[in-house]
Computed example of a mutant assay.
Amino acid sequence: MPVSPRIGLVGSQGAYGRWLRRFFEQRMGLQVWGRDPVGDTALSERALLEEVDVLVFCAPIRQTPEVIRHYADIAAGIERGQLWLDITSIKAAPVAAMLSSQAEVVGLHPMSAAPKSATLRGRAMVVCEARLDAWRPWLEAFLAASEADCVRAEAEQHDRVMALVQGMVHASHMVQGAVLRELAPDVGGLDAIRPFASVGYELDMAVMRRMLASNPAIYQDIQFDNPHVAPMLERMSAQLDKLCDLVWRGDNVARDQLREQLLERSRDYAGKQSVAEGSYAFERLGYLLADLREPRFISVFLPLDRPGSLRALLSVFEQRGINLDSIHSSRSADGELLFRIGVSRDGDATALQDAVRAIEAEGIGRVLEASGIA
């Protein structure tokens, strides 16, 4: 096993392919070669196999097993001594396909879209070791560099869990989108609903809109290509039918059955501590949404990531007697780390305008947006 293995990406022009190239080159200092039908065909498939030590498949879900088998046929033994990885949302079929090769094999599933950040810090990644020996030390180094919260699982277990974590969640939000499309026009449309929104509605709408903004093929494949999703949908449909029947009946017996069958049993199954933790997490998200709705804020990018940078930013407001309501860090669409600072509604507008000028004049940061301070 080489100290600095050469990395090959199959699907190098996709979102994760582009992210992995940056990660391997910039984070781990490794050489990367890629191949993709869309704009990355300088190397033939055989040449890519001959060039690399680690081959990562990041193709679309439904195509991945066939693509892997195709590469295994082309390799015809030259992959012996290599490590093959895939990062597909379904694991049993891709892992089985990789095992038809003579390479060492590990299936990976980062539990998020390709991030804007340089690592997977704060995100889970499922690791399915199928055939691993000489490459284990490098794999562990790679996982450590990714900063992901790694969970080990068998490929079959992964797919059964994903039927719930992905299949069930995506299905419920796709259905919500369809119901809104049918019924929202009767009450004035989505914009008319928004002022009435609860925290729960806002959170659900955020997930639904995130899905609608993403590649629909991902959600399509997760429903169709995981064999455990269809049985889950049958259970989900049966529970929804039960709820519908109880609500149409509407009598006291139906009300008691709804509470007992759909609320109390699930509460008891989840457990007292889990329910309490979930309730508190929901409250925290509610406070966050309330902060983000406040109309008076300043959004600042700090170019110098070093101790004291945030203190220098906050001192600008302190020196001018400006009271802050909230501070939240996030990332821009380009992946820049920024701070959204909510300011008191009754703060002096002149002082706020002076603070904005000082942030840039003193080289502390770049103000991306300043709202409600005119």
Rank of each mutant, 00 (worst) to 15 (best):
M236Q: 05
V38L: 15
A118Q: 08
R210D: 13
A145Y: 05
L233S: 01
A217V: 10
G321Y: 07
G29K: 10
A42H: 12
V343C: 03
L240R: 04
L108Y: 01
E283A: 12
E264F: 10
G167F: 00
R62E: 08
M174H: 09
R121V: 11
V126P: 00
P216D: 04
E283K: 04
M208H: 03
V300N: 00
P216F: 06
L233R: 00
D354G: 05
L285Y: 13
L183C: 15
S330M: 15
D291T: 05
Q157A: 09
R123A: 11
E362H: 06
R22S: 08
Q157S: 08
Q166S: 12
F339D: 01
L338F: 11
A75S: 02
D204L: 09
L258D: 03
G188H: 08
S198G: 13
L120E: 00
G342K: 01
L143P: 01
T88N: 08
G372H: 07
V52M: 04
D268I: 09
D325N: 14
D256C: 13
I298Q: 00
A144D: 09
V56F: 05
Y269M: 13
T119L: 12
P5K: 12
P137T: 12
S101W: 03
D159R: 02
I68D: 00
A92Q: 04
G77T: 03
P307D: 03
A93P: 01
L292W: 09
R259A: 13
D149M: 13
W138G: 04
R366E: 14
P94T: 05
R46C: 14
S117V: 10
M174A: 07
R235V: 01
I222C: 03
L132C: 11
S330V: 14
D354K: 08
Q26K: 15
E182G: 09
F196W: 11
R27K: 14
A92W: 00
V52G: 02
G14R: 00
R265Q: 13
F24P: 00
L43Q: 06
A312P: 05
A153T: 05
R357P: 03
L49E: 00
E51L: 11
F23S: 02
V187N: 04
L243C: 12
R345N: 11
R123T: 06
D348A: 08
F339S: 03
E154Q: 15
N226H: 01
D36F: 03
R35W: 02
F142D: 00
Q176V: 04
D354E: 14
I7G: 01
I359V: 07
L310N: 02
A270R: 13
L337W: 11
G188A: 09
R209F: 06
S100H: 07
R22A: 09
V316S: 02
V151H: 11
L55F: 04
V300A: 02
L43K: 07
V126W: 01
K242G: 08
R181Y: 10
A171L: 09
